[in-house]
Design a protein around this nucleic acid. Sequence first.
DNA 1: AGTTAGCACTCAGACATTTCAAGTGCTAAA
DNA 2: TTTAGCACTTGAAATGTCTGAGTGCTAACT
Lengths: 359, 359
Amino acid sequence: MESEKRSAPKELSERKKQILKAIIEAHIELGEPVGSKYLTSNKHIACSSATIRNEMAELESMGYLEQPHTSAGRVPSEAGYRLYIDSLIDSYRLTEREIEELRTNLRKKQAELDGILDTAIRLASSMTDYTALAAKPRKVRVTVSHFDIIRTDERSMILVMLIGGIVKTRQIRSRVPIAEEASSKLETLLNRKLSGLTAAEITMPLMMEMERDMGAEDYLVEPVVKGICETISAFDGGELRFDGIDRLLSYPEVYGGERLRDMLTLFERKQDLLDVFSETEMQTGDDGAVKIYIGRENLVKTMDNSTLVYKPIKRGDLLVGAIGVIGPTRMNYSRVIAMIDHLSRGVSNLIEDGDERSD
Amino acid sequence: MESEKRSAPKELSERKKQILKAIIEAHIELGEPVGSKYLTSNKHIACSSATIRNEMAELESMGYLEQPHTSAGRVPSEAGYRLYIDSLIDSYRLTEREIEELRTNLRKKQAELDGILDTAIRLASSMTDYTALAAKPRKVRVTVSHFDIIRTDERSMILVMLIGGIVKTRQIRSRVPIAEEASSKLETLLNRKLSGLTAAEITMPLMMEMERDMGAEDYLVEPVVKGICETISAFDGGELRFDGIDRLLSYPEVYGGERLRDMLTLFERKQDLLDVFSETEMQTGDDGAVKIYIGRENLVKTMDNSTLVYKPIKRGDLLVGAIGVIGPTRMNYSRVIAMIDHLSRGVSNLIEDGDERSD
DNA sequence: AGTTAGCACTCAGACATTTCAAGTGCTAAA
DNA sequence: TTTAGCACTTGAAATGTCTGAGTGCTAACT
């Protein structure tokens, strides 16, 4: 009997590894528990079903396999998947076609970060067949580094703000005409007084001071500064986009009934998922590798039977977001990993240098 | 027998109307077919269940009611709902609380149109308990009305474009430093040559002409113009946002199993829904009333058993989008209509005058 | 020792059958 | 014209049966 004896990964014989790998890959392919007989006939393993049964029993007691019920085949456990990903998996080479498809599509709508991310998740979802998601992390200290004012006509102007490399704009209208000089005066004033300040650091005395400086056009200050504060506050960054939610339905064994509901709610609430991205990644100055969270490893209980594969997106050394894929634990890991890796890299390059560049 | 005798709405007796109304409201409330007995005991109708049965049989032959199967209660048909909405419904007064909640929440994140729409759908969804959606219509002729260039540092600038009242920006980097004069020269050149042109109207000869005009810095022209074209093309407008997809699951009778899949696919594909918004509304210079599409009335077959309630959003006379709610045909119409009406109005006001204003 | 063949056992899922309750249509009485 | 009563219909739920896939174990085999 021996009861349970976990955490002895070194002692896996070569044949056990081979069997485990075969089981996992068969299960990823079929989505059903896989039995000993299937293995002998479809995967080339040089022993009989009985032997495999023995090995499977051992693998189960080691915690790498599970049995849904007594007379069913085996299913990989989370530990099994983890082992598989860490040491058994064959790395997937994207084909020329795939790379080309990624590249051309990614270029299509590269106007702004949002646009890029949107196309990226669309791509990720359509090419992996899982639900894709992208996050912009919550920023710690949000400040405007540069202000600019554009007069569009007599009584309206556009305030352009550069926040951490992202451009935000805001319309300003006035009931009375605004003089050319007034707007440029306001612009320099904003740059001098407000650049580098967080919303919390913009105080009433500061605003009153600015009103004094503006002289005749002091009435402009209040609405503009208010607007700036709002924009800064609104720019918490924390945003999450999805594509291909309907693909969850391709895996009814996992996302049938209640589960689906949980998942949709998770997507809608966004907060939990944002936390995963933010807490795990953004703070630790980790290297930018592809991260994989399997089932319980996720902090969010809803994702017990799901896997999250994602990779951060950087602009220089700055972390601006992350892109990934979420799906059932039985996921085509090698392909997804390669895909996300490539995509994230592509997006990073795109925002790195806005102008043309080939790879 | 008399067989079927439709389209005789005038001949509805007062009692029939009362019964139909009661049935519809009961069905909206309970979600199940409603029987004669239920009506006599729970709604105050001054006759017995047998009488009601007779009336129901007639209403059914007129096409206002349907019977899922022989021994079930009655369910309103689409024609029934239509009649109800057009002439039977009591209009819903939003409570002070509700109005206040809408107002304060709507103000929160009003930095840009996108932001406003996002909060608006979030609000719509949470306050109606249905899935909310907002669309930005496909623009017919997309042109840039004003260009502006901001130098952020020596070798990078931001190109600001005003497209139909919406601001779009784009980063431009250069490997060699750009002189102050060069950027302002480029700016005036862009405004003179490209404002008012669609992407298709920007031709090669035109670009070459601009390169001549730019003189020494002609290398800037190509990437910038290319970027402008991309931005214009990308700005087809057509965009669709959702909130509260998970609320579909509150109506499992309608969105159970296959149906849910269809619905999610519909949401993901976006195109069909965008068409509904665009074709129906954007072209006909219709008045800005709340529109209601019930079941088959929708062009999209997936929405057979759903209702779409929406209202356009205007900026002045310009149509900039629409906001609405989608849900099961058995929807709390009066409340939803009032809500969407108010919300759309609120959003319109917000973008009308960017600065402060109370209602 | 490790491997294989054979056999009894288990159990979820599919299918058939029964039961139940809700709601109707119709008829006859008020 | 309305109402009470009753026979009838029918989907949904409950129950029972059957089957096949897959296991664990034992005994023979290399």
